[in-house]
């Protein structure tokens, strides 16, 4: 005997009108991810000129991103990825890869300026408690672009983030924490929801907590 999930109007819930926890766009990108590296062993990455990986399996999300920048136009013309994580993490990496490659490719400088919020908007939003699952993609992209700068000897363009690394797994810096505090994070729970910092990493947690205290004092003291 199977249970029928009965809606209030008495109809048995059918395929046509399923309840789905995220936006339709998240669903599309989760079940049909774009620009995915499907077989990493058979993947020829030799003509990709930047690669970046962030996250860790311990904190629940990690991703690897390969980009191809056309030196003449200074545009990202290809972007491939692999992600370990939940539906939001998979969908947001997929969406990011679409955003940087659509319309002939995004200018490198514009790609560097992408923020998680831009991806969220395109995805039609995520429930608040899932936002933290979408914050790694732009960091992986920046890492890959930086590597492209290094390979192409454009050292002057490398983003030497004048900031201190707080969590090496998720590449969260003191600057990210400052921004999060300004956006309203006033305890570690909220900070972690925004930033995914110090998960499964006690040192990083302690550092983040201390920095949050410092910025709280600075701005709201």
């Amino acid at each position: 005997m199977n249970i029928k999930i009965v809606k209030t109007d008495g109809d048995v819930e059918g395929l046509a009108e399923q309840k789905w926890v995220y936006s339709p766009s998240v669903k599309t990108h989760f079940f049909h991810p774009e620009n995915l590296v499907e077989d990493v062993n058979g993947f020829d990455d030799s003509d990709y000129n930047g690669v970046g990986a962030v996250g860790s399996p311990a904190c629940g999300d990690m991703m690897k991103m390969w980009i191809k920048v056309d030196p003449k136009s200074d545009k990202v013309v290809d972007c491939k990825w692999q992600t370990f994580g939940c539906a939001s993490a998979i969908a947001s990496t997929s969406m990011l890869s679409v955003m940087v490659t659509e319309n002939g490719g995004m200018k490198v400088d514009d790609a560097l300026a992408l923020k998680p919020q831009n991806i969220l908007e395109r995805l039609g939003g995520l429930p608040p408690r899932k936002v933290h699952c979408s914050v790694l993609g732009d960091k992986a992209l920046r890492k890959a672009i930086n590597e492209y700068f290094r390979h192409s000897k454009q050292f002057d363009r490398m983003v030497i983030e004048g900031s201190v690394m707080v969590d090496p797994d998720t590449r969260i810096t003191d600057r990210d924490i400052e921004e999060a505090v300004l956006e309203g994070a006033d305890d570690m729970d909220k900070l972690q929801k925004k930033l995914k910092v110090g998960i499964a990493n006690k040192d990083a947690y302690a550092k983040a907590e201390a920095l949050m205290g410092k910025f709280m004092e600075k701005y709201y003291g």
């Binding site: 311990a58 904190c59 629940g60 939940c86 933290h132 699952c133």
Partner: peptide
Amino acid sequence: GSACTSKSLDPSHVITALGLPYEAAH
């Protein structure tokens, strides 16, 4: 037991209590 369905960012405290790493809980 993954963190992604819990309200916190921590995965199952039960799986990690078995001496398994976070990866196993996720």
